[in-house]
Design a protein around this nucleic acid. Structure first.
Lengths: 205, 205
DNA sequence: GAAGCTAATTCAAGTGACTTGACAAGAAAT
DNA sequence: ATTTCTTGTCAAGTCACTTGAATTAGCTTC
């Protein structure tokens, strides 16, 4: 029996099976998108077809365990996280070092960058918040533009932050605010890892 | 002369023309996306081709004034907004130690607390952001409730954060997120100053 | 162990949103 | 008037993702 959820269940169970499938799919999709991967890319990396992924993400089928395992491996999460119950009331506090870490796809989102998720995914959040860890020499890929506002605080290291036409050299403790419409990107200019606490409005992904 | 920007200019101007075109395009695109319209839909509403819109949004061509007028009309903005210089440019970066510091009224807001303003007060900000410095033994006054969402990160020290019915002990590096409607307050439980990087959506959401 | 089922997986074709390039129609400059 | 712009259209192309039919793998059950 390879699948996650048996279908021997009948009647009332069917529905909850369906929604849990969908939740799994949603999380997988989110993980993928956060990393800037396309279905094709992920399929290649996890050695399966795009089609399969599409169906899994949309809750049409449930992946086999080996399959799911390969997926979370590529995505850098763990299976547990995919099934964690949504954090109503709990999940207010997240401990240092216990937050999910996501490596970005170097080609699409930037070189040597990983995101530490501060706000877990669940629909209805007004804010998006990650700690960007940038290895020495790392930099974000091409400028990004979207609606909203960005605010951040440099926890450690030194970066050049480019916003609009200007470049700013930031060191630990410096902060910034700007309109997301302005194209922006950054580069680690120190010898060590730089970390930025970064918050922005709507998660218009 | 139908276009926005003349091309008689030569040399150095060309570049700025190009970027201003791109900015216009970006804003148009943003307006469209915010409204959830596709190129096709907008094209139909503004009576032009998708292709044209695509080019305008990508700064490949500049729309004629009548065209632009129809666009902003459908999008419900005005032409002026499309060209407004974004206020930003200045006031993007705030240096550690150079941010305005505000001592809270002990009676009304809390004991031994000062706020370091990260986002300057000015209308039109979507976010509110302060670093809360809490002296040893200090605590916020009675619980606060408002609409929106809060996210924070403990920069240094140790605090007890009370949200709803629960209390959490936080140390440096821990983070939290919660709905602003939940009553919340905090207390410094360490021997030294505690600092929290705190972001919230303004009540006007 | 073969027969039969069910559900995961694939391949190939389809769709929707956007882009690009070749060309037509107007204005502007000569 | 003719040449040279540039906006605008049409049709073809691309990219990311979906859908559907066909195949395959993994159990059950005889």
């Amino acid at each position: 029996m390879n699948k996650i959820d048996t279908h021997n269940s009948k009647g009332g169970d069917e529905r909850s099976t369906a929604t849990s499938l969908l939740r799994l799919g949603t999380r997988l999709k989110l993980s993928r998108q956060t990393r800037g991967l396309t279905l094709k890319a992920l399929a290649a990396a996890a050695n399966c077809s795009e089609s399969l992924l599409s169906k899994v993400e949309n809750g049409k089928i449930s992946p086999s365990l080996p399959m799911l395992h390969r997926l979370v491996e590529v995505l850098g999460t763990n299976i547990g996280w995919m099934f964690e119950e949504s954090d109503g009331e709990e999940g207010i506090v997240f401990r240092a070092g216990a937050r999910p870490l996501i490596a970005l796809d170097p080609l699409r989102r930037g070189e040597g960058i990983s995101l530490e998720r501060v706000i877990p995914y669940s629909p209805g959040h007004l804010l998006q918040c990650n700690i960007h860890h940038i290895e020495a020499g790392g930099e974000s890929a091409g400028p990004i533009q979207h609606a909203g506002e960005e605010v951040g605080y440099l926890l450690e290291g030194a970066i050049d932050l480019m916003v609009g036409e200007k470049t700013f050299r930031l060191t630990a403790g410096d902060s910034f605010v700007f309109n997301s419409e302005l194209p922006h990107w950054y580069r680690n200019v120190g010898d060590e890892r730089a970390s930025i606490f970064w918050v922005n409005t709507p998660a218009t992904f």
